[in-house]
Design a protein around this nucleic acid. Structure first.
Length: 520
RNA sequence: GCCGCCUUAGCUCAGUUGGUUAGAGCGCUGGAUUGUGGAUUCAGAGGUCCCCCGUUCAAGCCGGGGAGGCGGUACCA
C-alpha cells in the first residue's frame, strides 16, 4: 500500500488458456456429463478413473525431452528424476491400464471415463489448455459391431442432450478407403517408404476439406497453399492427373452418376442408406486396391449394424473427408458435427463444428503388450458441447439452487434468524442468513446478486405482530420494469406478503411454487 | 512454430504537432429518499497509460527489445 514498504504483491490472474467456472455453468456441465454417462452406462460400459498424470513414456508419442519438456504436454520430473506428464487424453491411460491389468480384466474390456485433460498448446476461443473429455472404449473387440456401437452411441448422446435431428450429424469413414484411393489414383501408400511422406501430406490435405473446400485441398495435394496471413504450406506434390483421379473417386461418394444401379447389385442393402453417392462407382474406382475394398466391406458391416440399431440416415452419413489422427487410427473413423449456426460472443454467426470423435486403434495396447489388441472408442469434448448447448438454450440448470435469504434486520436477534434458516433447511429449502455486516439495502442487493427467489424479513414491525414479510424478488423485478416511471418504487410493498411467523415454511414454499409456476 | 493486428480504470473506449493534476460512459462502494435490489440524485474509491531499455529539458504519445491478447496458419493424441 504505502510506497515505503514496497511489499511484493502478486498479480491476481488465471494462467492463459485456463479458466474459472462458476455455479450455473458447472451445473450445466454436470448435467451434460450425467446425460452422456447415462447413455454410456446403458450400453453396458463400466466406469473407470485414472490419475491426472502418468509416466511420460506411458503416454506414447509426445515424449518430453530435456530441452523442451513441455512441448505439447505438461511434464515434470519426479524425485527419482523420472519424467511425468499430465494426460492429454483418456485413451493412452486406458491402454496403460489395460496392459497393466490385462490378465484380470474381462475381454473385451468396455469402460467409460470422464475427466480433465491438459494440452500445452495455443488456446483459442472455446479451446483451453485444460478441458474435459468423456470417453467410451471397447478394448479387445475386433469386429465392426464394436465400431458401429460407438457411432450409434454418439448419435444417441446427441438425442439425449436434446439436440434435434438435423442439427447434428455423425460423419463416418474408413481410413482404408482413403488408403485405397491414394493407392489406385496417386500410387502412394503409407507402407511404401518412398511415398510415406507424400501419403502423410495428402491425408492432412484431405482432412482440411471442411475448412478450405476442394479448392484448398487441391492446392495442398499439389504444389502448396498460401493462407490469408501470407504463410505458405508446402503441398504433397501430386501430379495434375493424380489429383483429378483422387477427386473423381471422392466425388463418387457424394454424387450419383450415370445409370441408376440396380439395388441387387449392392452386396449390402444397408450401406446405400448412409452413402449419399454411388457405391458401385466407388467399388469400381477401388477395384485394384485390396485395402480399399476391405475398407468398403468393413463399412458395409458397420452399416448393417447401424441399421439394426435403428440409426437413421438423418443421424449418420458417410464422408470420405473424415481423416482424424494419423498414426493412431487404423480403420473406421468418425466425428460428430453440429450443423447449425449460432451467434457467438461477437454477434457473428458461427458454426461449432466437431464436438466429438472416435475410431479404431488396433495398435495402441500393443505398445505395452507386444501383442495386437484391437480397440475402438469415442470421445466428446465437453467444453465445445457446452458452448453449443448454451447457444441452443438447451442447458439445464437447477434454479432451485439459489438460496432464500433471511435478512438480518436486528443484529441482537441473530439466533432468531438462525432458527428460521434451520426450519427452512429441515424442510428441504435452500436458505441462508445474511452473513455480511451491512444494512438492509446492501442485504437486498446481495440477495439480488445471488439470484435469491425471495427474502425473509423480520424487523420490529413484524415481530410485534408475530409475522414475517416475504418478498418475491423475481416478481418485484418484473413490476419495476413495467412501472418504473414514477417514484412509486419507494412504496416497496409490491411483490411482498405477510405470513404468520409460525407459518414461515409454508409461506416460503407457497411463494416458491408460485415463482416456479410463473417461470413455467 | 510462422504471419498480421492490438495493449490507457473492473468493462467499453477518448486522449491534440511529445508539455503541468490522464478523462468519459457503464459498473462498483457509500449516502439521501420512514425498513427494501431494479428508478432518481449526490458523493467516493479505483490507473506501474503492459514491462524494460533508449532519445529528449520533457514520453501514454517517438525508437529498440520483451511479455500478453486477438485473428489466421502449421502441428495435433
Amino acid at each position: 500500500m504505502s510506497k515505503s514498504k514496497k511489499s511484493f504483491r502478486p498479480k491476481a490472474r488465471v494462467p492463459r488458456g485456463l479458466r474459472d467456472q462458476s455455479g450455473a455453468q458447472l451445473q450445466a456441465e454436470r448435467w451434460m456429463l450425467d446425460t452422456i454417462a447415462g447413455v454410456y452406462a446403458r450400453y453396458g460400459f463400466e466406469l473407470l478413473d485414472t490419475p491426472a498424470f502418468e509416466y511420460a513414456d506411458a503416454l506414447g508419442k509426445f515424449l518430453p525431452d530435456q530441452d523442451r519438456p513441455n512441448e505439447g504436454v505438461f511434464s515434470f520430473q519426479d524425485d527419482d528424476e523420472q519424467w511425468l506428464s499430465m494426460r492429454y487424453d483418456l485413451t493412452a491411460p486406458l491402454a496403460r491400464y489395460v496392459a497393466e491389468n490385462y490378465d484380470s480384466l474381462p475381454k473385451p474390456f468396455r469402460r467409460y471415463q470422464w475427466g480433465p485433460v491438459w494440452r500445452n498448446e495455443k488456446p483459442g476461443p472455446g479451446r483451453f489448455r485444460q478441458f474435459i473429455q468423456i470417453d467410451a472404449d471397447s478394448v479387445g473387440a475386433p469386429g465392426m459391431a464394436a465400431d458401429a456401437e460407438m457411432i450409434a452411441m454418439m448419435a444417441d448422446c446427441m438425442d439425449a442432450l436434446g439436440i434435434a435431428r438435423g442439427d447434428y450429424v455423425v460423419r463416418i469413414n474408413n481410413r482404408k478407403i482413403l488408403d485405397g484411393i491414394l493407392e489406385t489414383d496417386a500410387e502412394i501408400s503409407p507402407t511404401d517408404p518412398a511415398s510415406e511422406e507424400k501419403w502423410l501430406t495428402a491425408m492432412r490435405a484431405l482432412d482440411k476439406h471442411d475448412r478450405f473446400g476442394w479448392e484448398g485441398v487441391e492446392k495442398l495435394l499439389g504444389e502448396g497453399r498460401k493462407d490469408e496471413s501470407g504463410d505458405y504450406t508446402k503441398g504433397a506434390g501430386l501430379s495434375r492427373e493424380n489429383i483429378d483421379n483422387v477427386r473423381t473417386s471422392l466425388s463418387a461418394a457424394f454424387t450419383v452418376s450415370g445409370a441408376p444401379s440396380s439395388p441387387s447389385a449392392q452386396p449390402s442393402g444397408q450401406l446405400s442408406k448412409y452413402v449419399p453417392g454411388d457405391i458401385d462407382k466407388l467399388v469400381d474406382r477401388l477395384g485394384r486396391s485390396t485395402i480399399g475394398l476391405q475398407g468398403l466391406s468393413e463399412l458395409e458391416e458397420i452399416a448393417a449394424c447401424l441399421a439394426a440399431l435403428g440409426i437413421g440416415s438423418d443421424q449418420v452419413v458417410f464422408d470420405p473427408y473424415v481423416v482424424r489422427g494419423l498414426g493412431y487410427y487404423t480403420g473406421p473413423v468418425f466425428e460428430v458435427e453440429l450443423t447449425f449456426e449460432a451467434e457467438n460472443e461477437q454477434g457473428e454467426m458461427a458454426r461449432f463444428g466437431s464436438v466429438g470423435s472416435g475410431g479404431r486403434y488396433d495398435g495402441l495396447v500393443e505398445m505395452f503388450k507386444g501383442v495386437e489388441v484391437p480397440a475402438t472408442g469415442c470421445s466428446f469434448g465437453v467444453s465445445r458441447l457446452m458452448a453449443a448447448l448454451e447457444a441452443l438454450g438447451k442447458t439445464q440448470t437447477d434454479e432451485g439452487q439459489s438460496p432464500v435469504v433471511v435478512l438480518v434486520m436486528d443484529k441482537e436477534r441473530i439466533a432468531d434468524y438462525l432458527v428460521m434458516v434451520k426450519e427452512l433447511r429441515d424442510s428441504g429449502i435452500c436458505a441462508e442468513m445474511y452473513m455480511g455486516g451491512s444494512g438492509m439495502r446492501a442485504q437486498m442487493k446481495y440477495a439480488d446478486k445471488r439470484r435469491a427467489p425471495l427474502v425473509v424479513i423480520e424487523g420490529e414491525d413484524e415481530r410485534a405482530v408475530a409475522q414475517v414479510t416475504l418478498k418475491d424478488l423475481i416478481l418485484g423485478e418484473q413490476l419495476s420494469n413495467e412501472i418504473s416511471d414514477n417514484e412509486e418504487w419507494r412504496s416497496g410493498a409490491q411483490a411482498q406478503v405477510s405470513v404468520p411467523r409460525a407459518g414461515l415454511v409454508e409461506g416460503v414454499r407457497n411463494m416458491l411454487i408460485r415463482i416456479d409456476g410463473r417461470q413455467g
